[in-house]
Computed example of a mutant assay.
Amino acid sequence: MASEWMIYGAYGYTGELIAREAVVRGLTPILAGRDEARLIPLAAELGLDARAFPLSDAARLDEGLRDVAVVLHCAGPFSQTAAPMLAACLRTGTHYLDITGEIDVLERAYSLDEKAQRAGIVICPAVGFDVVPTDCVAATLAAALPGATHLRLGFDTRSALSPGTAKTTVEGAVGGTRVRRNGRLARIPMGSLTRTVDFGVGEKLAVAIPWGDVASAYRTTGIPDIEVYLPTSRSQIRGLRLTEIARPVLRLGAVQRVLQNRAGSRPGPSPETRAKRPMHVWGEVTAPGERRVARITTANGYDLTVSASLPVVVRLLSEGYAESGARTPSQLMGADYVTTLPGSSEMVLTES
């Protein structure tokens, strides 16, 4: 049985954070990616093996996953990279994890449940900030109010974006805002759905955003109506509505390339910045005449991604692990998983 594991996209902002913490914990991942010039120096510094190969060549991809039991896929935008890696994991019998928050990537991953079972592998996307905290909140709330019909989630963080996340955000603007209605994904105009939310630090105006939980939380809970919110301002809402008007232009390939190149040039947040900017997570479920609310404070999203992803790898590497199929983080690690991570408070569950 294969015992090696791999970080693909190890030289990206978040991939490198995970690789460095893995070494601190005594783990020895194989570092991988398509850019050998960026990959080899990092592997040499950390004393790890490296494999350079593209995702576009199926034969090289399969060879790259040789003897690999688990791949933690960190190379975004995942809309472009997840499909070939998922296909390769199914062919090679490799457990698949990633750190995406992209709705369509999550939906695709969950659609492979039967194939994953036949291949004897686990497919568990979004084992980081996208979407471990909110998924655990969703699972906790669903257990607290069986029969809930509406689930609303959200988070408050002032953290800057990494280059990869910024590129994904630019790409996501083309699709507009998405929610779940009666069990189905639905598009609504950007900036059109707002409400007031107390994320744990006082009430704030918030706007619905196209976040991965409209896929993952539905998989976890089966609640038919789901929305995800982020704090905003009146001026930002006006900007979102202008973006909605500009969507046909934003779809143009040349415009996307320019915007993504600019987004990818920014540095990720420093350790000092991350330490000063924790995340406040909120969730609410309702049923006729009933309501439950959950709140938790966690570490900054990037630090949480590092601390959340590595125990999932370790679990899948553990001797005798026999589960297979597509899973959400809370299904794989438990609804209380987020409370075990460094920087997390206890989850507070109330009726208001």
Score class of each variant (00 low, 15 high):
Arg184Met: 15
Asp35Arg: 11
Leu349Pro: 00
Asp104Ile: 10
Pro125His: 08
Gln260Asp: 08
Ala148Thr: 02
Ser235Lys: 04
Arg251Asn: 10
Glu272Asp: 13
Arg251Cys: 07
Gly325Phe: 05
Val255Ile: 15
Arg292Gln: 04
Tyr218Ser: 03
Ala160Tyr: 05
Leu252Val: 13
Ala37Met: 07
Thr14His: 03
Thr243Cys: 11
Ser344Thr: 09
Lys167Asn: 07
Phe155Lys: 05
Val228Ser: 10
Val68Gln: 08
Leu48Ile: 09
Ser265Lys: 03
Leu39Tyr: 00
Pro224Val: 02
Ala59Met: 05
Arg195His: 12
Ala217Tyr: 00
Ala322Gly: 10
Ile121Thr: 11
Leu161His: 09
Ser324Ile: 03
Thr92Pro: 05
Arg315Pro: 08
Met1Tyr: 06
Pro342Val: 12
Ala32Asp: 07
Leu106Met: 11
Asn182Pro: 07
His280Met: 13
Gln260Pro: 02
Thr134Phe: 09
Ser3Val: 12
Leu55Pro: 05
Glu36Thr: 09
Ala308Gly: 08
Arg219Phe: 07
Val131His: 03
Trp282Lys: 04
Trp5Met: 10
Glu171Ser: 14
Pro84Ile: 13
Ala126His: 04
Arg108Ser: 15
Pro224Gly: 02
Ala217Cys: 01
Pro210Asn: 07
Thr350Phe: 14
Gly183Tyr: 07
Arg277Ile: 13
Val122Met: 11
Ser216Tyr: 00
Val170Thr: 12
Arg184Asn: 14
Leu205Gly: 11
Leu304His: 04
Ala160Ile: 08
Ala126Met: 09
Leu310Thr: 06
Gly15Phe: 01
Arg327Pro: 01
Glu21Leu: 09
Asp303Ile: 07
Asp104His: 13
Arg234Tyr: 07
Thr221Phe: 00
Leu341Ile: 15
Val312Phe: 00
Arg262Phe: 14
Leu317Asp: 00
Leu252Met: 15
His150Glu: 13
Gly128Ile: 08
Arg20Ala: 13
Gly239Val: 03
Leu205Trp: 07
Met1Gly: 13
Thr140Phe: 00
Arg238Ile: 14
Leu72Met: 10
Leu205Glu: 11
Arg66His: 12
Ser111Pro: 03
Glu45His: 10
Ala75Gln: 10
Leu349Gly: 02
Met347Lys: 03
Asp336Glu: 11
Tyr321Ala: 15
Thr328Glu: 05
Lys167Asp: 10
Ala143Trp: 02
Asp49Cys: 13
Asp213Pro: 00
Leu86Asn: 06
Ile209Gly: 06
Ala19Asn: 04
Leu106Phe: 12
Cys136Pro: 00
Ile99Pro: 00
Pro77Phe: 13
Asp67Leu: 12
Gly301Val: 07
Trp5Pro: 01
Thr273Gln: 10
Gly15Ile: 06
Gly334Phe: 08
Val170Ala: 15
Ala160Arg: 09
Asp225Leu: 00
Gly128Trp: 01
Val249Tyr: 08
Lys167Cys: 15
Thr340Arg: 08
Arg266Ile: 13
Ser159Trp: 06
Gly334Pro: 03
Phe155His: 12
Ala116Tyr: 03
Ala126Ile: 08
Ser3Trp: 03
Leu55Ile: 15
Leu27Pro: 03
Tyr8Ser: 14
Ala50Lys: 01
Thr220Ser: 02
Leu185Pro: 04
His95Leu: 11
Val132Phe: 06
Lys204Gly: 11
